[in-house]
């Protein structure tokens, strides 16, 4: 009986797969493609960074210019991630917990930055705050520096990372519905209590997921920041911008040393993302306890 079953199931599997040579060719093409286009670029970053030995690598990273870039990158990421976190959660509450007309349109407006070229994301702020921009002359008269300074870099970064948190939360919160919150409200909880005691525990993995992707993009953004930064050495260069400057000066070890930090950030992000996705999948199944 079990022999028959296993025979039948293997016969069914045969119906759903290709002959062995075809399988091998398809796997080989896929693996070679991913190795050439994804693995080798990652490996080359570290190979170049350590090409003159670990001493050269460490001294490249301890350069004051590198430190200033790291500090600026962390500062800008902290500003833009925290603002987008707060407003992403607020937007997800409004969109996921209520029915209203134009919801799909509002979601596509929130998604807009994903389809705008990074360079254009920087350009729009130059047109507002630049010397020839709408508000540039007024800002100059009042001695307020937006462009070529932290506020401009932060604004451009907020623009490109705008959708991440809201996007991670909206489908999750829509799926969870409003029953638990309505129960809390009817038992006399305030809106904020309901959010922090009922909603937040349900969406915590989704929040982390959104923050993780938002942070990776915020630290790695190049095009938009490049347009608004002004490239003032030791002042307005983020890590990706410093990678470019050092590379163009043929300081390859220094350039790839900074790049290796960003590559590690990307790898850590991917590992954390995989772990969070498992948590999110488990959360979707009915809880046993």
């Amino acid at each position: 009986m079990s022999e028959l079953q296993s025979y039948l199931s293997s016969a069914r599997d045969d119906l759903r797969t290709e002959p062995r040579p075809v399988r091998i060719v398809i796997i080989a093409i896929a693996v070679i493609f991913l190795v050439v286009f994804v693995v080798l670029p990652l490996v080359v970053v570290f190979a170049q960074a350590f090409s003159k030995g670990i001493g050269a690598y460490l001294s490249a990273l301890s350069d004051p210019e590198a430190w200033s870039a790291i500090r600026l990158t962390l500062l800008v990421a902290a500003i833009s991630v925290s603002l987008n976190l707060v407003f992403g959660v607020i937007a997800a509450w409004a969109i996921a917990k209520f029915e209203f007309r134009g919801k799909t349109f509002l979601i596509s407006l929130i998604d807009l930055p994903f389809s705008v070229s990074p360079v254009i994301s920087g350009l729009v702020f130059v047109l507002l705050f630049g010397g020839q921009g709408y508000w540039g002359p007024w800002l100059q008269a009042h001695n307020i520096q937006v462009l070529f300074a932290v506020p401009g870099i932060a604004l451009a970064t907020i623009f490109v990372t705008f959708p991440f948190v809201a996007r991670a939360l909206i489908p999750l919160m829509q799926e969870q519905g409003t029953l638990e919150e309505e129960a809390a409200i009817s038992l006399g909880a305030s809106g904020l209590q309901t959010f922090f005691r009922v909603t937040l525990p349900n969406i915590k993995w989704g929040v982390l997921y959104g923050v993780l992707l938002c942070n990776a993009r915020a630290m790695g953004e190049f095009g938009a920041v490049s347009v608004v930064s002004g490239h003032i050495r030791g002042e307005t260069n983020t890590m990706p911008l410093l990678v470019e400057i050092l590379y163009n000066e043929y300081q390859f070890v220094s350039s790839f040393a900074i790049a290796s930090l960003l590559a590690m950030l990307a790898l850590i992000t991917l590992v954390a993302k995989t772990i969070l996705e498992q948590h999110l999948d488990e959360g979707q199944q009915p809880r046993g306890d």
Binding site: P41, L42, V44, V45, P118, A216, M219, G220, E221, F222, G223, M239, P240, L241, V243, E244, Y247, S255, F256, A259, L262, A263, L265, A266, L267, T269, L270, K273
Partner: peptide
């Protein structure tokens, strides 16, 4: 996930 400038130099 990889910052575009890093991809570019790599």
């Amino acid at each position: 996930a990889l910052p575009t400038a890093v991809a570019g130099v790599a």
